[in-house]
Design a protein around this nucleic acid. Structure first.
Lengths: 315, 315
DNA sequence: TCTCCGCGATACCCAGGACGTATCGTGACG
DNA sequence: CGTCACGATACGTCCTGGGTATCGCGGAGA
């Protein structure tokens, strides 16, 4: 059975007349007769009752026609869905991210992506940078947002773009002596109880205090920037984190720049270099539109998916 | 797009290899390549990523394949459903019946039909004989069970078979003087308050009392045999009805034959002579199996639907 | 009752395309 | 760097879907 048979049967049922149905199909009447006869022979049942002034579906015909309509609808949907999938409008995207990215680039990017690609299911997960990289390489994530470029075995299979720069700021309770000061000196911090993320304590904050390991080794650890801010509000110490932390709108805390200014590793978005998923491409093209400093590297990647880029830009 | 393209794409996705897929389809590899290429050209998207050691569906391909599977499933279901409909296994049957038919032939017939044809939706409706005939002619019913052959304009378009004979019996309260008697004389009844159905009072019971219209004109009317029996139990008079009324299992009533025995018009099942519905044929073939006295007329009708009869007999 | 008309079925021919065979281009792997 | 395996391309062939002409038949009207 071919789709042609379904189309012919539906046309015949609609016009109840071989001649008119054939004309509507752009063919002559005899071929339509033979095709319908062949279909009935294959099914093993008469689908139409022939009368002298036309044709009417039998009960078997009615049952067949209902399924035929559904089948043809599925076929056109197959084509439509393929196009949508190719433009990254449907599918799934699994994103792991470090908490501080939720403060700035992600709300804009994800909000825009959800609006322009409502058919894509987003699976979001807060992860520290190292876990995100591992999950990405294991194929459990499609995108990982972490601080700094991924390192370790397999990292060469990933592509990474910067989606935001930060420098170190301190957060304190309004009751703290630092509150009201626009900046504090680094050596003043060494004498305070510090609150930092495990990521920061283990890696990129190490160079800040030079040889003096005491401040970080004795620090209170909190994975999330909101927890750091909350602990600071509790007067548990001086919180240290990226300056996008300033977006936290608590009235019981104050922020101070740290002097000398210390630049943190960039917020970085990674994905598998071999990943040709159009959904990923669509997501990256939204990222490019929303983040000014991603550089031109994305353009080269997105050249592989012209329709995706055009689709994203249109929205 | 033809069904062939769907089958080819599914085979290719299954084997991830042009050569093996082609072999599984019983064709050579080059035609498969060209057909897939033609499909991709029509869709406007690449459905498969070609590598040097095989082939893997793209995101667009995955979306397409899901719909393709559904479309092919619909096509096979179209064939299956057509066969089922032709054998009367699916569809709808609207049956109007007079209440007393529910006592004897219908429970057996409908029970068997429901078991053998679970896919047929039955629409059942209690109707008096005249209304049933009218609804049948109006196309609102497929089968009407009434007492006596349909009469009136259009009745020649109907076919009718007898599905049961009855004679007149009386029903009385256990407290009534007739209770315990196996038979009562007709002229004894004339002196009693009678309870009869409107149908009976208006037509086929008229001849019973000859010129004396008083017993029927003054009778209590109740459409349903159970109501007649209930009223008799209330000592509201002597109920008259078909002897299949004896199947009513109330302990507060007794039945008596009426002497001389008066044969009532047969319980008759009617349907449109022009109705070629396989569901009707299936139903009638079950009727023939369940009712011994339908005569041979049904056989001629059912000869039009050999597969239906075979199907019903098998169960 | 006969004739005419309209509809679907059949007969026959033709052309497009689906398939087969042979061959080529190209990555992967030893 | 040679070989192998896989998909793409080229080309011939045959099947079949479609066109034209015609037939069979049932219904309507004279």
């Amino acid at each position: 059975m071919e789709a042609r048979h379904l189309r012919y049967a539906l046309a015949l049922a609609e016009h109840q007349h071989f001649g008119r149905a054939a004309r509507s199909l752009g063919i002559a009447q005899p071929p339509l007769s033979t095709q319908i006869a062949a279909l009935e022979r294959e099914i093993g049942e008469l689908l139409f009752d022939r009368t002298s002034r036309g044709v009417v579906p039998t009960a078997a015909g009615e049952a067949f026609l209902a399924r035929a309509r559904a089948a043809l609808a599925e076929m056109t949907l197959a084509s439509v869905d393929a196009g949508r999938a190719a433009r990254g409008e449907t599918g799934r995207l699994r994103i792991g991210f470090t908490g501080s990215a939720l403060l700035d680039p992600l709300p804009g990017v994800l909000g825009r992506f959800r609006r322009t690609h409502p058919g894509v299911r987003l699976a979001l997960q807060e992860l520290d940078s190292a876990t995100g990289t591992a999950a990405l390489l294991a194929g459990e994530l499609d995108v990982a947002v972490g601080r700094g470029n991924p390192r370790g075995v397999g990292a060469e299979d990933l592509l990474t773009v910067s989606i935001g720069t930060d420098h170190l700021v301190a957060v304190v309770s309004v009751a703290h002596p630092f509150a009201g000061r626009s900046a504090v000196e680094l050596d003043q911090l060494a004498a305070e109880d510090l609150i930092v993320s495990p990521d920061a304590a283990a890696s990129y904050l190490r160079p800040v205090f030079g040889a003096d390991r005491a401040p970080l080794d004795g620090a209170t650890l909190a994975r999330d920037v909101h927890t750091i801010a909350g602990l600071a509000a509790c007067c548990a110490g001086v919180g240290l984190g990226p300056n996008r932390m300033r977006l936290i709108a608590r009235t019981d805390i104050r922020f101070c720049d740290v002097e000398p200014r210390y630049r943190l590793p960039d917020l970085a978005m990674s994905f598998r270099a071999a990943d040709r998923s159009p959904v990923l491409a669509a997501f990256l093209s939204v990222v490019r539109l929303n983040c000014s400093d991603v550089g031109s590297r994305l353009d080269d990647l997105l050249a592989r998916h012209p329709s995706v880029v055009a689709d994203a830009a249109r929205s």
